[in-house]
Simulated assay, not measured.
Amino acid sequence: MATSNPVVRYLESRKNLTGSACGIAGLALSFTGAAGSLWPLIVVALYAAGALIAPPERTPPPPFPNAEEQLDALRSDFVTLRGYLAEIELPEGAAGRLAELDTLVDALLEPGWVSDPEHLHVLARAVRQDIPEAVDTFVRTRWWSRVAPGAVPPERHLERQLAALHEEAGQIAAALQDAEAIRQEAHTRYLEERGKS
Results as ranks from 00 to 15, higher is better:
H121M: 01
E110D: 12
H119F: 07
V122Q: 10
G50H: 07
Q161Y: 08
A169S: 10
W39K: 12
R156K: 13
W144D: 08
A148P: 00
G33A: 11
H166G: 13
D72R: 02
Q129H: 11
D136N: 13
R58A: 14
A28C: 14
D130Q: 15
I131D: 05
A21K: 05
A67R: 07
Y47I: 07
K15W: 00
A73M: 06
H119R: 02
A95C: 09
H166N: 14
F138C: 01
E155F: 02
R128Y: 02
L81K: 05
D178K: 11
D136Y: 12
N66H: 08
L191Q: 11
A86G: 03
A126N: 05
P111S: 09
A45N: 10
L158K: 01
E118C: 00
L27M: 14
L71W: 01
L27C: 08
E193V: 02
A86H: 04
A95D: 01
P153C: 02
P55F: 03
A148D: 12
L27I: 15
L38N: 09
R58I: 11
E57V: 10
L74H: 00
S37R: 14
A94L: 00
L165M: 15
G170K: 01
I53T: 13
A175I: 03
I24G: 08
H121F: 07
S30Y: 10
K15I: 02
S76N: 14
A179C: 11
R142K: 14
G170I: 06
H157S: 13
L17K: 15
V8D: 06
Q184H: 12
L41W: 14
L165S: 05
A28G: 13
E118P: 01
I172G: 03
A48V: 15
L176R: 02
A94C: 13
L27Y: 13
W144C: 04
E167S: 14
D136H: 14
P132N: 09
H187S: 10
L109W: 00
